[in-house]
Design a protein around this nucleic acid. Sequence first.
DNA 1: ACTGAAAACCAAGATTT
DNA 2: AAATCTTGGTTTTCAGT
Lengths: 168, 168
Amino acid sequence: MAAAKSSKDGTEGTASDTTAQSMDETNKKIVTLLQEDGRRSYVSIGKQIGLSEAAVRLRVQKMLDDGIMQIVAVTNPMDMGFKRQAMVGITVNGDIEYVARELKEIHQIDYVIITAGRFDILAEIFAEDDESMLELVNRHIRKIDGIDRTELFTYMRLESQRYDWGVR
Amino acid sequence: MAAAKSSKDGTEGTASDTTAQSMDETNKKIVTLLQEDGRRSYVSIGKQIGLSEAAVRLRVQKMLDDGIMQIVAVTNPMDMGFKRQAMVGITVNGDIEYVARELKEIHQIDYVIITAGRFDILAEIFAEDDESMLELVNRHIRKIDGIDRTELFTYMRLESQRYDWGVR
DNA sequence: ACTGAAAACCAAGATTT
DNA sequence: AAATCTTGGTTTTCAGT
């Protein structure tokens, strides 16, 4: 999941945080265009939305600095040699935030969310093969203090992944 | 989830697909650098890995064309005005692939995976507010033919989202 | 808005496999 | 022979004033 996050390495505010003020209509348009092509030139963006190159550049720079937007390369983990992926549903009997922080430190976890519902936490994990996935779950994740139960949802097929929500 | 996918709009192969041949060590290095900064210049990448600017540019272009990599802007949905996000666990009594295809068409769903485990499908959804999320789940998702049950995991906090797996 | 500097682009030609 | 890389020259974009 997680097509969607901004801050480089975690610790997002709660759902009730104030939404970023700087997200006016112009910035949304810019983001939209960069969602299609992250390397699109400032000139061409400016032309499209009727703004000077410099104005676009400053806005983009500010959004990057503020951590509101990132421009990154994304690939299919499969293509990068990670043959297994899964979602782990976790129930906690101790401190949820502590567990979440610990999970965040594990390299093979790219996505951690605290949820309401049957699970306290959902985490997306990936591994080279079954063996390494088992080790990850059994030796690392389940060793974290305060974890009650884990439930694994192995990915069989990633059917769709979209970065352009709000666009289409 | 889903920090990770390549093809622009879905339909990925199964987990057993052959992994992309063109992903040699050089390309991996390039991807790694672009995962940190998607607008990094070809010159600087080339310098880093000992290749000419043109060579890097051609490789990047090829990876983009082949759909192995995308360079995109990513933002926190919260900043874009979507105050609610959730994972939906879905069990199907009919054709799983059909349901997955239908889900893929819904704009407010950015991520659909077919899984093994208690749920047949996991989908990440987002909405402006509670009302629109309720409508999405109740009027759209649950109306799809073949869906048995749905279970909602509302996001309380996105703890971490990483795009640089394989790096650190 | 202007300008020098940097980056991207393109077309051959060279090199590798 | 096909694919990949380099080089040199040109155009476009960038970044700072």
